[in-house]
Design a protein around this nucleic acid. Structure first.
Lengths: 145, 145
DNA sequence: CTATCGAACGATAATGATTATCGTCGCTGA
DNA sequence: TCAGCGACGATAATCATTATCGTTCGATAG
């Protein structure tokens, strides 16, 4: 159920993002704020469907991307699309451009002595770290749009 | 061109990994060691093709996965292959199980003291960090195979 | 040396996620 | 009221990846 304040908050967010507030967007946004895990578009769709029986999966996709592009939500991984093989066996970070999704290596001597946290929840055993620095590469900074 | 020592090294790696050294695997492995970026299976395929004109893309995929599963190479991102939305707006990082790919949130305080690299190359503008702790979740540790 | 057996290959169909297309709907302003 | 436009819904198309399956290769037993 959407409260009045949530509705106002959503309208304010849309104004800020420069997008039209619609019923579908409200329900999708509201659903996302209620989910505290890392849902896929399909997950969102099945939760939205009962409230908007005529909604299309394509609409869910379109609006999720809209939310991400306007900064209302983030995606978990900036490089999820296709399988990429790591050919650099040295310890290093990644620079990931959020626009063109290209990946640059960043040598990380600083990381060599990184203290592994001992108390990870749920019996999780850590083996390795992977650090992404997200931002904009030089090429994408130049091309404004 | 594969040298004698590379050939020996590859054979040793295969023995260690418990897989059969084949001509296709040698060429794919050799190609990967020569590429210093983050190639996709398709990228690898087009470089392997001239040396093995009859090779199939499926074979490239199968052997890349074999290399990854046996630890001869790693993949860049351990995350799901699908889009996931981040619904936790608090500063946090991720525990990622390398087997079932499930993602757990890790409060940022548990990773405090992380050394942030200062000088980024190529005019890259950093906006945000994302740290993945890779390992095995409790459930996957129990199930041996 | 030849027959046999299983692993690896190659070709291709199938799948799953995502995106593009396109006709329709509903709101806003003339 | 009517035109224009953005958003929607349905669905076709695309792209990466995986599964299937018949064939081939190589090691080994006879």
């Amino acid at each position: 159920m959407t409260t009045a304040t949530q509705f106002e908050q959503f309208n304010a967010l849309c104004k800020e993002a420069g997008i039209t507030p619609t019923q579908q967007r409200l329900v999708i946004w509201q659903t996302l704020t209620e989910m505290h895990n890392h849902p896929s578009p399909e997950d969102v769709y099945v939760r939205v469907k009962p409230q908007l029986p005529t909604v299309s999966l394509a609409t869910v996709y379109k609006n999720i991307h809209l939310f991400i592009d306007t900064g209302m939500f983030r995606e978990v991984s900036m490089h999820h699309g296709t399988l990429r093989i790591e050919t650099n066996s040295a310890l290093h970070h990644h620079l990931v451009c959020r626009k063109c999704k290209s990946i640059f290596d960043l040598d990380a001597k600083q990381l060599s002595g990184f203290p592994i946290p001992q108390s990870l929840p749920d019996g999780f055993v850590a083996e390795q770290f992977s650090i992404d620095v997200l931002g904009l590469c030089a090429a994408c900074r130049k091309s404004k749009p």
